[in-house]
């Protein structure tokens, strides 16, 4: 509750900033809005539930921004964290601006989240390979062929929350969200115990 409240506070002031991008380094300037939540270097901020953007594929970031803006994502009233993103995504209506922004985000170094959670690596590895690796890649590096994002380096709590969202029909339900629906089907094929170990395995990848 506290976090949401805080989020709302900065939210209103930040939206203003979006309207004044300087032409000199548009990407960097636009990103200043984002950095309040996603961090200077896109490393994410778990206190704000904002995921890491560093090291993520630009096509994936772009679709997510589009999905937030078009209600394909965060369309469920229960999705309080997702809703925080919606106004910022809607502000990014100029394709050129978004392009510059994404290329700026692209310059960030991926972060490591090794050691931030516990689990059983052997179990995690076997269930990851059986249930996730064929789309997200053997080392959770992502795979453009399947529009499956990189998971390595992402905040484990964020990953767990997204999977819970898929399981509960908060994300990945819209008929036009084909990839989200694919993921939702897989989220419903894992148990909580498997998931803990899987996310541990992911957190150990670079």
């Amino acid at each position: 509750m506290k976090q949401i409240f805080w989020g709302k506070l900065i939210l209103s002031s930040l939206i203003m900033m979006l309207h004044f991008p300087s032409f000199a380094d548009q990407g960097k300037t636009t990103y200043q809005t984002c950095s309040a939540c996603h961090g200077e270097q896109g490393q994410g901020n778990s206190a704000l539930n904002a995921p890491s953007l560093a090291g993520q594929f630009d096509w994936y970031l772009q679709t997510q921004i589009e999905h937030f803006a078009s209600d394909l994502r965060a369309n469920d009233p229960r999705d309080t964290h997702g809703k925080m993103m919606v106004p910022f995504a809607k502000q990014l209506s100029d394709p050129e601006q978004t392009k510059q922004l994404l290329s700026y985000i692209n310059s960030f170094e991926a972060v490591s989240v090794k050691g931030t959670i516990k689990g059983d690596l052997k179990n995690g590895s076997r269930y990851y390979q059986a249930k996730c690796g064929a789309c997200h890649g053997g080392e959770a590096q992502g795979n453009p062929t399947f529009k499956a994002p990189k998971l390595a380096g992402q905040d484990p709590q964020y990953l767990l929350r997204q999977i819970a969202n898929y399981q509960q029909g908060i994300r990945g339900t819209h008929q036009d969200d084909k990839y989200g629906r694919q993921m939702a089907m897989m989220a419903n094929a894992v148990s909580d115990k498997e998931l803990q170990d899987i996310v541990f395995f992911i957190s150990e990848q670079q």
Binding site: Q182, M186, A189
Partner: peptide
């Protein structure tokens, strides 16, 4: 996972 990806995943795809 045997040689190819699990059928469950193919069904999702």
């Amino acid at each position: 996972r045997m040689i190819g990806p699990p059928v469950q995943i193919i069904q999702a795809l």
